[in-house]
């Protein structure tokens, strides 16, 4: 189980392959891998986005991401998980977050992946500031969908 916060751009697919290769204990033990990758778009809430800065509360972010990861591994029978989250300055098309889950079967892999991304987005202290042609603006939280 690994959670990483990165200041620099990363390639989620390369990181997933590398991580899997670095876990010899995983080999032969999983039949399902699910992946979620969140990427910065060039358009949001009616404005073209030139860049985005992700501010975070460093130790609190790490602690809460680790906690969500522990919860997912306790709730579902999964073999391993990897969470990578960016902070700092991002450009459109840059991956923001990547969640990968390895499990024996797809049901647990899908459920844990979904839980991880949903929980970290509402619990980890990150704040988005977008750079548009009109200037910088803090992104307002999305209304809760029932």
């Amino acid at each position: 189980m690994t959670v990483r916060l990165l200041a620099e751009a990363f390639d989620p697919w390369r990181e997933i392959v590398r991580y899997q290769e670095e876990q010899p204990a995983l080999a032969g033990k999983f039949g399902a891998t699910t992946v979620f990758v969140g990427t910065l778009r060039d358009f949001n809430q009616g404005h073209a986005v030139q860049a985005m800065t992700l501010e975070h509360y460093a130790p609190m972010t790490g602690e809460h991401l680790e906690r969500v990861a522990r919860e997912a591994s306790e709730r579902w029978p999964i073999a391993d998980l990897l969470v990578i989250h960016r902070y700092g300055e991002l450009r459109p098309n840059d991956p923001i977050v990547c969640v990968a889950v390895w499990a024996e079967h797809r049901e647990a892999a899908f459920a844990a992946c979904r839980y991880l991304i949903d929980e970290l987005k509402t619990r980890a202290p990150f704040w988005k500031q977008e750079q548009t042609r009109q200037g910088r603006r803090w992104v307002a939280p999305e209304p809760k969908v029932k």
């Binding site: 619990r123 980890a124 307002a140 969908v145």
Partner: peptide
Amino acid sequence: VAFFPPVTGGAP
């Protein structure tokens, strides 16, 4: 003690 606005994780 830290103070901050609601976190912005993005639309579901």
